[in-house]
């Protein structure tokens, strides 16, 4: 498609500069897309592994907790869980990867999850709560990675659209327009020359 421009030399120069810029941008974006894809694929494998591990450990910890709960009097369990003994502080920092701002979750744990007496609680309750505590940290780690994955996937999609827009719309349009202006200018030059020759002919015939 030819862009809506005035076919003159100034415009031609401007469009040629734009074409160079577009081609450079296209190459850069294509490289970025390739690198993002590479990193995404590496991350996908890691996330898949981590998710499997978290699912497995969460199921194990929850199973243990359910049995611990069933094996204890519900009153004693509620009393044990009344005051939380652990405080988890989550701070979020940002890191830029290929222009994508991804979060980094930092977890700081204070206190102990076993904030109860031992006489009316079971060892299986400790074991399940400690397993849950460990899983929570991995769950946060997984959330960080999954968010990174999501943001990278969005960025890849955005970059892909930009690359396609440059490759299939902007650069062809610029080239068509440059071609059009070049042809138009040649045409104008030819017409000018013909006119001059005609004028010269008229002057000579007098």
């Amino acid at each position: 498609m030819i862009l809506d421009t005035n076919p003159n030399r100034m415009e031609l120069l401007r469009l040629k500069k734009r074409r160079v810029l577009a081609k450079r941008g296209h190459k850069l974006l294509k490289d970025k897309q390739d690198e993002l894809m590479k990193q995404l694929l590496e991350l996908v494998d890691k996330v898949k592994e981590l998710r499997k591990k978290v699912d497995r450990e969460l199921a194990k910890a929850t199973g243990r907790y359910l049995f611990a709960k069933a094996g204890m009097g519900i009153e004693f369990l509620e009393s044990a869980m009344l005051i939380p003994g652990i405080r988890i502080e989550l701070t979020i920092e940002e890191k830029s990867t290929m222009g994508v701002k991804t979060p980094i979750f930092k977890v700081q744990t204070e206190g102990s999850i076993q904030n109860y007496g031992f006489a009316h609680t079971t060892g299986e309750l400790d074991s399940s709560l400690l397993a849950i505590e460990r899983v929570v940290e991995e769950l946060i780690h997984l959330a960080e990675k999954e968010k990174k994955l999501q943001l990278m996937a969005e960025e890849i999609e955005k970059t892909r659209r930009r690359v396609n827009a440059l490759e299939y719309i902007l650069i062809p349009n610029l080239e068509d327009t440059i071609k059009y202006i070049t042809m138009k200018l040649s045409e104008m030059e030819r017409s000018n020359l013909t006119r001059l020759m005609k004028v010269k002919d008229i002057v000579r015939s007098r």
Binding site: R64, F67, T122, G123, E124, D126, S127, L130, A131
Partner: peptide
């Protein structure tokens, strides 16, 4: 495996 189930 850290489980107290048998002890309990």
């Amino acid at each position: 495996d850290g489980s107290f189930s048998i002890f309990d």
